[in-house]
């Protein structure tokens, strides 16, 4: 099972780096959706011996939400706004990938003293979840469109989710559902806001939303 977990970790890293190097927004959404599906498998993988109904339920919920609902929402917003790609990001794509690798190094270096206790957990989980968080942040900071920022936020959430499922394990279901619901609502709200922004401004370029300052 550890083998599978390692695979998931590697997939996470790869999707993150690919995200950093992709300019087409459709592709980005798909990547994030794929990441969501991969993560959805995690609860099942963690409890290798006894896969309970709870883990399955969580996995299904996660896959549905992250793999299906969010992408659809974002695709719709994208169609409304009528844009296809991220134009002229603050940080170029190749530099972004280097920054991603640097972030990975930083994550590993930062967490090298921390030994998170837990059975059958890959030592890479915590650094990679931190790495995913950083990539999400980087995406928010370095991309111009509001959609990209939502994507960044989703990646950030994915990082946290990784940590949550693997390390903390069985947090009470109610909390987890509350968390999922909250994230869902967050993305939903962001979608609505993007919709309105698009209607009011005729663009969803967050870079140009800078009238409030000082």
């Amino acid at each position: 099972m550890n083998m599978l977990m390692e695979t998931v970790v590697v997939l996470l890293i790869l999707t993150n780096l690919m995200l950093l190097g992709t300019s087409r927004l459709f592709a980005c959404i798909r990547l994030v959706a794929f990441q969501g599906v991969v993560l959805g498998c995690l609860p099942v993988l963690v409890h290798s011996g006894h896969v309970g109904a709870r883990a399955v339920g969580l996995a299904v919920g996660t896959i549905l939400l992250k793999g299906v609902v969010f992408p659809r929402l974002l695709f719709r917003a994208l169609r409304e706004a009528n844009i296809r790609r991220e134009v002229d990001p603050f940080v170029g794509y190749s530099v972004s990938i280097f920054a991603g690798i640097l972030a990975l190094a930083v994550s590993i270096w930062t967490t090298r003293h921390l030994t998170i206790p837990g059975p059958g957990v890959s030592t890479l989980i915590f650094p990679v979840s931190l790495f995913t968080i950083l990539v999400g942040l980087f995406h928010i900071v370095s991309r111009r469109t509001a959609i990209s920022q939502v994507l960044g936020y989703l990646v950030l959430e994915n990082g946290i989710y990784t940590f949550a499922v693997v390390i903390v394990g069985e947090v009470p279901l109610m909390v987890e559902l509350g968390v999922l619901l909250d994230i869902y609502v967050a993305v939903f709200v962001m979608g609505i806001t993007i919709y309105h922004i698009n209607r009011e401004f005729d663009h969803i370029d967050a870079d140009q939303l800078d009238s409030l300052k000082g």
Partner: peptide
């Protein structure tokens, strides 16, 4: 709903 309030909402939200 105004441009400025939407901008503020976006920043607040994000």
């Amino acid at each position: 709903r105004t441009q400025a309030s939407l901008e503020a909402t976006w920043k607040y939200l994000l």
